[in-house]
Amino acid sequence: MKYWRKPLDAAQVKPPRGEVHIVINRCKGCGFCITYCPRKVLEFSEEFNRKGYHPPVVLHPENCVNCGLCEAICPDFAIWSTPVEQPEEKKENAGGK
């Protein structure tokens, strides 16, 4: 992740990861999730869904931090994210004690 300043606890705290799930044929293509995703994970698809809308596709899955804004702002209950377990890295001096 990019930071505009490096947090003091960057070594201890890892940003969470998320996986985005989209029910493509429930989407009405309003674009709320795409526009307001703070990590710009999503993009409009080229193809239509069954209803004739362009649902979002996950363009940058690695950027998702599981904030849940897409889920909260979606009027159609068509998108949400779930946390991704991250492999425990060997922490040097993690927490100090």
Binding site: I24, V57, E71
Partner: peptide, 17 residues
């Protein structure tokens, strides 16, 4: 624009279901 992955999320339940 990116192609649609139609299999994505089909088997999952929305958290508010």
């Amino acid at each position: 624009m990116k192609r649609l992955d139609v299999t994505l999320g089909q088997d999952l339940r929305h958290p508010l279901e």
